[in-house]
Nucleic acid binder design. Structure first.
Lengths: 185, 185
DNA sequence: TTTGTATATATCAATATTTACATATGTTTA
DNA sequence: TAAACATATGTAAATATTGATATATACAAA
């Protein structure tokens, strides 16, 4: 099995999901995976008996397959969890553009960073809504590190923290740009 | 040209580099790219006249090609910089394992997080060495946002901040684990 | 003395990921 | 009222990425 397969098992271990939902969960986790990758992989995992699915017929909406983890899947997942984790891969085009910032003029640079700031402010808003929902619905179990929600909760907390830091970094860079502009007057 | 091509142009826009050095720079930027990807791409960029290289013969070491950006490369790079940036992709296996943390026992979880903490403490140490070197060698130009070092400097500052935050998150999770362990006594 | 590491580049095969094509219905927006 | 969007799954082709093999020298460690 490949890494994405284990990642899907990890998410489904919390509760059953459809492929459609998994695409969105992966995107929210910044691990973008297209449905063209997710659907065939779920089929494969089902054939390998790591997952099972329930076919749900719907009216007014397309039918769906709700995947659950099997015992075999859980065992495979456990082995993966305790295995060595490679260094995280961060492919952030914006940050790589920053590297060559001196090539563009100050106003353009400023507006690029302002845009980044706005994007992350939106991310923080929606992340906070998710966190508040978890805190509201699972308040008693959040201190129970063996609860199903715990892992998901601390995961989102880390994402939230990261997004907040991006905002403060953007503001810091904007202040440097402003300081520089003043000395040029 | 593909995204990695632009990223290489971005780095080379600061100063000329060899393919070998670029592999290491990419790794330090968490954008891992193997030499099997870098070398053919540099050749292609040279053929497209985005880059030029100087062949340097060495004694006791293999010969090398030092790539510099051309005017054409710089124009292409500028266009890329002002284009829309897709959302960052973060493929962090450790964080996806955290999702399913409840499957493993408390002590195993604790040691996984301690290991993550140790890895990031090392990252911070080496990042701080890099930052101090930049601050020492370019102290006058660091406030000049049009200097070549500025982009690289604020890039590394962001990486440093991110790594520090990872450490504080690990410590927070460890404290939650300890609190839970106490309530279980 | 052999094995591993650092320096340096190159290519091939295997795998993973992205982009495009395909289908179908209900709701929302211009 | 037509176009876009959300729900839902699927496949095929193109592209990107990883892992392996290849070559060569110097140096350090086992």
């Amino acid at each position: 099995m490949n890494t994405l397969g284990y990642v899907l098992l990890s998410i489904i271990s919390i509760r059953p999901y459809t492929g459609y939902e998994l695409v969105q969960i992966m995107a929210a986790a910044s691990w973008k995976a297209n449905h063209s990758q997710i659907y065939p992989l779920l089929s494969k995992l089902e054939q390998q008996e790591m997952l099972s699915f329930e076919y749900v017929e719907q009216i007014g909406k397309p039918n769906k397959k709700i995947y659950s983890i099997t015992e075999k899947g859980e065992e495979a997942l456990k082995d993966w969890i305790v295995s060595e984790s490679p260094d995280p891969i961060i492919r952030d085009e914006f940050m790589m553009k920053i590297y060559a910032m001196k090539l563009i003029d100050t106003n353009t640079a400023k507006s690029l960073i302002e845009k980044r700031l706005a994007i992350f402010e939106e991310k923080v808003t929606s992340r906070e809504a998710t966190l508040q929902a978890i805190e509201k619905n699972h308040q008693e179990t959040l201190k129970d590190i063996t609860s199903k929600q715990f892992g998901r909760y601390i995961f989102f907390k880390r994402k939230h923290q990261m997004e907040k830091e991006e905002i403060s970094w953007c503001k810091w860079v904007l202040s440097l740009i402003d300081d520089y502009s003043k000395t040029k007057d």
